[in-house]
Design a binder for these strands. Structure first.
Length: 650
DNA sequence: GTGCGAGTATGA
DNA sequence: CATACTCGCACC
């Protein structure tokens, strides 16, 4: 008998200064059960705690007597080496701990499911050779598929033409990329932002790859179903995994591709510490595992644009001229606050053109009407040119705040109350609060088209699809039903309201939502039309009319660079008790040269401060923030301090 | 976080 | 000199 073996264990202990593996002796009696990736119980700081074995070694560097493993919870290797690397990379990117991130990556154990017999998963049947109806029609699209099939690791942002045709079929694009990768013998991970999209993707995967040839990983179906799907992937019995946010960490044997639909959706932001964004997780994963990476969408997020401009992603998109040929024609109807009663049929505040467009569309099929919900935080705008008013101090959009003497501008980010403001575009000093639209539109339109079937789809009552029959389909953004043969027309209402949020991302978000609606409409050659009701001069509306999310993202990124915001910079937010935040700002600033903003009050005895550096110094900034946490924890310093890196919402 | 050992305070 | 208590730190 040789020396007893040593297990390197990551202990479930989210203290920043203990964020590293610890060595334990494997008792003779447990030797057969211990495998890398299994769950164990160990004694740590006098208490019994859970952990994962990440490595089995013959000896330890530790010059003290090792404590023994207490118990092997399960021999199932649930934490694969590549996921260890991914979890470490994500924790480091977000100044978080391995323990916090691994909780997001490995679902809770479900014993009964683990002991149950293996379900046999048939291999997915890849598409026959030349069957790409979407991706291969794009410049570089065929090369992308070929690279995936050849075992290479291409990284791309595929900006789809928004149209209800194969060329604008996001599900098809994901399935084709998956098929190419599977055909080359590697595994695939397909990620979508929400349950409704997952249903659509699953349906197509059943059709294309066969029932049971893939698993769906989502927390929504309960712990047993989640763990079953996770195990199927971890055991290597299934090559294709579909899922939402948390599935970005799913173990897939011999991973060849991570593909994500609509990376701009806000559901990708994890609400638990350290708040990783699935777009970033996917990107880190492509790096760590050297696999393909594909962001598919109708829009282009500012973040993917930054990756494209860094040369890290290849842009795959059709030229603008080709897009306009294939996609619906988009027109603007200026919402010039029409006088009530101007349209006798409806007593409507809507422009007359809208009714004409709807009537024309209904003659050919269903018509989609996108109606934003009320309740966004409205930002102030220039009274003359209507561009968003920005804080002169930090560049964040200004909000209106009620005071004794009416309204005053306030910056919700840096807390400033600018006394004088001048429009950066036209020089005017006058501000206005944009009119907030009202959602009585459904009733109005219903009355205007009395003999028409009206379908309503909203967050509470989503409708998945509608037939080709003429119908007026009213939907809030994000839950538009799919029309089987494409909508004949779409009307996008209250554009200004969607644009008027006091949020840096308002424009990008509005364009993303509009384009998703446009993508449900028939192409120009089938007389598909889209009408947007809003200010024609607004940059975002212009981008929609030109169907040019890339040009928009380029300008958006340039703006962010000028204002010093992510993704052009790396930004961290420090929040907690004043003393702790002040000290942290002090230390990090001197250490990294970061530019501080704040601190400003942030609720009950809590303040927040912001630090920004150029991307090249990002790792140093995050490292310094982690270091501050380590020191604080080790010295048991007073007060609380939370760190957020590139938060989704500022 | 938790437990422990060193160092210091307190009292018989 | 014995016991009590706090502080600082290591935790495998």
């Amino acid at each position: 008998m040789g020396e007893p073996k040593v297990a390197r264990v990551v202990v479930d202990m989210p203290l920043p200064h203990l964020d590293r593996p610890f060595d334990y002796v494997i008792p003779e009696a447990l030797a057969a059960e211990v495998v890398p990736g299994c769950r164990v119980k160990v004694r740590f700081a006098g208490r019994q705690r859970d952990g994962f074995v990440i490595e089995v070694a013959n000896s330890s560097q530790v010059d003290r007597e090792l404590a023994p493993l207490l118990k092997v919870t399960s021999s199932e290797p649930v934490l694969k080496p590549e996921i260890v690397a991914l979890v470490r990379a994500v924790a480091d990117h977000y100044a978080g701990t391995f323990a916090d991130v691994v909780r997001l990556a490995v679902p809770p154990r479900h014993g009964i499911t683990e002991k149950a017999d293996l379900i046999k998963h048939p291999a997915p049947v890849p598409l026959a050779g030349e069957s790409s109806r979407c991706v291969a029609r794009y410049p570089h699209g065929a090369q992308l598929l070929a690279a995936l099939g050849d075992g290479r690791a291409p990284r791309a942002a595929l900006t789809l033409a928004p149209v209800a045709r194969p060329v604008g079929d996001w599900v098809g694009a994901l399935v084709e990329a998956a098929s190419a990768t599977l055909g080359g013998g590697r595994g695939v991970l397909l990620l979508v932002p929400d349950a409704a999209d997952l249903v659509r993707l699953e349906a197509r995967c059943v059709e294309v790859f066969g029932r049971g040839s893939f698993v769906t990983l989502t927390a929504e179906k309960g712990p047993a179903a989640r763990y079953r799907a996770f195990l199927a992937a971890a055991r290597g019995g299934v090559r294709l995994v579909l899922g939402t946010r948390a599935a970005a960490f799913a173990p897939v044997a011999d991973l060849g591709l991570v593909a994500m639909y609509d990376d701009g959706d806000d559901s990708w932001a994890e609400p638990r510490a350290p708040y990783p964004h699935a777009r970033v997780v996917a990107g880190l994963r492509a790096t760590v595992q050297h696999c393909g990476l594909l962001y598919v969408g109708y829009g282009r997020s500012t973040e993917t644009q930054a990756m494209v401009e860094r040369g890290w992603l290849t842009a795959v998109a059709a030229p603008l001229a080709a897009r306009r040929e294939e996609c619906p024609v988009v027109r603007v109807s200026n919402d010039a606050s029409p006088v009530a009663g101007r349209d006798p049929a409806a007593h409507s505040r809507l422009p007359h053109e809208v009714f004409t467009a709807i009537r024309a569309g209904l003659a050919a099929g269903p018509v989609l009407v996108q109606v934003p919900r009320a309740g966004y935080l409205a930002a102030l705008a220039c009274a003359r040119c209507r561009s968003v008013a920005r804080c002169p101090h930090c560049g964040h959009p200004l909000a209106g705040e009620r005071t004794e003497r009416g309204a005053a501008p306030v910056c919700r980010l840096c807390g400033g109350h600018p006394e004088s403001w001048h429009c950066g575009d036209c020089g005017s000093a006058e501000l206005r609060a944009p009119r907030v639209g009202v959602v009585r539109t459904a009733e109005e339109l219903g009355r205007a088209f009395p003999n028409t079937l009206v379908v309503q789809s909203s967050g509470d009552h989503p409708v998945a699809s509608v037939s080709d029959e003429p119908a007026l389909v009213l939907a809030t953004p994000g839950v538009e039903p799919v029309a089987v043969g494409g909508y004949a027309a779409a009307v996008l209402l209250d554009a200004e309201m969607l644009l008027a949020r006091a949020d840096l991302r308002a424009g990008e978000e509005a364009l993303r939502r509009w384009l998703s609606a446009v993508a449900l409409v028939r192409g120009a050659s089938d007389d598909g039309t889209v009408m947007v009701v809003g200010e024609a001069s607004a940059r975002t509306v212009q981008a929609l009319v030109r169907l040019d999310p890339v040009g928009f993202a380029e300008r958006e990124l340039a703006d962010r660079a000028e204002a010093g915001f992510p993704p052009a910079t790396r930004l961290i937010i420090l929040e907690g008790m004043a003393g702790a935040v002040d000290e942290a700002v002090q230390v990090i600033t001197t250490e990294t040269g970061a530019a501080p903003l704040g601190p400003v009050p942030a609720g009950e005895d809590s303040v927040r401060a912001m630090l920004r550096v150029p991307i090249s110094a990002g790792a140093a900034l995050v490292g310094a923030a982690k270091h501050v946490q380590v020191r604080r924890a080790a010295h048991k310093e007073e007060g609380s301090l939370r760190v957020r890196v590139d938060p989704a919402v500022l």
